[in-house]
């Protein structure tokens, strides 16, 4: 297992009634994404526990894309991963942020 952590500064808080949202399942080739409000000075912090070693650069690329798209701040995103592909990671993060923003997934 590898633990990874990223922080993206300069985002904007999402106006939402949700304090936390969970999307996805920690099943083979899948991941679960927990999005919570957190006072991080406008930053978006993403913590990952993944069963697959050595994919830090790919995680960083996918998460940078997601952050550029959403520009969210003051959120903590926690991910448990069981070997999901980058496309699945991207899909789940979009689902999770949509659900957190109050849109029906």
């Amino acid at each position: 297992m590898e633990r990874l952590s990223y922080e993206f500064p300069g985002g904007n808080p999402i106006p939402t009634a949700n304090s936390a949202v969970l999307i996805g399942v920690l099943g083979s080739g899948n991941l679960e994404v927990l999005v919570e409000s957190a006072s991080l000075g406008g930053a978006c912090r993403i913590e990952i526990e993944t069963a697959a070693f050595g994919f830090g650069r790919i995680w960083e690329a996918v998460l940078t894309d997601i952050f550029d798209q959403w520009r969210v701040g003051d959120v903590r995103i926690s991910i448990n991963d069981a070997g999901a592909t980058p496309a699945v990671v991207s899909l789940r993060l979009n689902q999770a942020l949509q659900a957190f923003a109050g849109k029906k997934p």
Binding site: L22, L26, E32, E49, N80
Partner: peptide, 23 residues
């Protein structure tokens, strides 16, 4: 709830990710 993070202490010791709700 998942955000309470009541997870398995055994799986982490074995080097496996643990689900937020322990399944």
């Amino acid at each position: 709830r998942p955000e309470d993070r009541i997870t398995s202490p055994h799986l982490r010791e074995l080097g496996a990710p643990a689900a937020f709700d322990d399944g």
